[in-house]
Write a protein that binds this DNA or RNA. Structure first.
Lengths: 172, 172
DNA sequence: CAGTATCCTGTCCGATACTG
DNA sequence: CAGTATCGGACAGGATACTG
């Protein structure tokens, strides 16, 4: 099965999109985080055509975001559970949720994230793991990493390891 | 231009995907954060067909993620800059970057996020804005928000009497 | 340089029917 | 219940040519 290729595959964002670039995939993962595991549950929740669900589930299993597990011997029955790689995708969903709530919910959010113990609403924000600082200012930018090739280095305007501040504009 | 509809549009994630559900859109935004603004820059960076670039740029302008601005009168020339809504999308890109680096860069990351002042690599993580706690445990879940309809409430199985925290309602 | 105009292909996706 | 098989449409996306 030939995988679609997204421009510069050195870019980790492009690599991520190879696996979840189709929107059904993301919604399936969302539902998996909600605890759904069975074909039928996904189908009802998403209102997706069964053949499409099969395709997307297979792709997610191939990419090792979901694992197909037999939960019954007679008859043979399978369900789909998140792998570690799949569970690690959650921050992306949180970020999408926060963004959607901020910009596309004029009448207020219909789905929020809550702390189960206190019941309080949670607003997810990104911080630097080491310093705890919020990633909001123009202070942060992307740079070539250790495995960058020449083209990536040129693109990000710096030799590996060296941080080069380019024309004072903000970059991710 | 009829917009594609994604299942349950109450879900903020689905709403977000309406705007950035196509992978070119996300890569264009990524490049916009790198400081690209002109048609030509995007085209060279992405290696995208010009008509596709036109279509995706128009869609992003329509969704108000990018703003088309005239930067020259004679001849008339336009460039594309991020709006506030577009800039707010950055956490999603960071999350995708972190996920890609963790799971799809066996030979090490080729692009990393750095603190421009210290040059140190940054690993973005999600925290609760209010408590600063990391969103990692099974402690957090999504729940129906103030604007949830009956179906959404059922879907998220809010326990009866569940606290639905609004911004002013976080009394423990 | 900054696009527009055509044409074409692949495939995402939906609808439906069918099976162990 | 958990899918597979088949058909068809819409459109994302590519290639190319052309314009002010």
């Amino acid at each position: 099965m030939q995988r679609k290729s997204f421009g510069n595959l050195q870019c980790p964002i492009a690599r991520s999109l190879e696996r979840v670039g189709e929107w059904w995939s993301i919604l399936i993962l969302r539902d998996a985080f909600h605890g759904l595991t069975r074909f039928d549950e996904f189908q009802k929740s998403l209102d997706i055509a069964p053949n499409m669900l099969t395709r997307r589930l297979q792709a997610l299993v191939e990419s090792e975001l979901l694992e197909k597990r037999r939960y019954s011997e007679h008859p043979p029955r399978y369900d789909y559970v998140l792998t570690e790689r799949g569970r690690d995708f959650r921050p992306v969903l949180w970020a999408l949720l926060a963004w959607g709530n901020r910009h596309f919910a004029p009448e207020g959010p219909s789905v929020v994230l809550v702390d189960q113990e206190t019941g309080a609403e949670v607003v997810p924000v990104m911080v630097d793991e080491r310093t705890g600082r919020r990633l909001e200012s123009g202070r942060y930018r992307s740079a070539p990493g250790p495995a960058a090739d020449a083209r990536t280095r040129a693109r990000h305007g710096g030799p590996p390891g060296a941080v080069v501040a380019t024309e004072g504009d903000d970059a991710p």
